[in-house]
Design a protein around this nucleic acid. Structure first.
Lengths: 107, 107
DNA sequence: TTCGTTTATCGTCGATAGACGATAGAACAA
DNA sequence: TTGTTCTATCGTCTATCGACGATAAACGAA
């Protein structure tokens, strides 16, 4: 079992908002740290962006490290492994040419 | 660009509930059609289950085909391709040679 | 036709999410 | 010390979610 239903649902819910997808994309495209630039990029109030960052951090998708006056945010991709495994399990015939159709164990 | 932020967020939001993860798992484990058995399996009221099915269907994750008196539900895995691509794009580093469907510890 | 079965929709309720402005806290510069 | 900058939290509001029971709609059987 790649993960519990609640664990997967929590990860999916954390990604279930366009602003948070945008934030993740920004972090993906930014090699190093990124701080208040996120606020300008997403076009929302600073408090709203901070709330989205808190949700992503609570889900373990990102990590925030205090670096001087600002905070260094970075992705924590491993946190999405249960969700990725779940989605991969139900998309065997995709053109990814990736995984063999491994038989599921009974649950 | 695998998909728009809203498209990915909608897919993630549709998966952002434990009951819907459970429904998808049931459909995954059931080769053929499945109808009212879902209600018994998830342990919620029939109207609630119908609502979850409606959400999953609206997101394109499942499809319902009328088959006599009941409805045949089946997965539509291709709908999750944008979300799968998004998650895969931000997990290039460890563990993903490509295959390895489960990143669980092996001992 | 009527009856039974299965699914979808409606109405309502409480809980949660999402947005904002305002404020508080932390770290550096001068 | 003061001042500036950046981030987190608080309070409040509206909108949406999730659950339920009740009801309607569609279909097959009798």
């Amino acid at each position: 079992m790649p993960g519990s239903n609640e664990q997967i649902a929590d990860l999916a819910k954390a990604l279930g908002h366009p602003a948070r997808i945008r934030i993740v994309r920004l972090l993906m495209a930014t090699p190093g740290c990124i701080g208040g630039d996120i606020v300008n990029a997403v076009g929302l109030a600073q408090s709203t962006v901070s709330e989205h960052l808190r949700i992503l951090k609570a889900a373990g998708i990102i990590s925030g490290e205090i670096s001087g006056p600002k905070v260094c945010y970075a992705l924590t991709p491993d946190a999405l492994a249960p969700l990725a495994a779940f989605i991969a399990a139900l998309t065997p015939p995709t053109g990814t040419g990736c995984c063999l159709p491994v038989a599921e164990e009974r649950s």
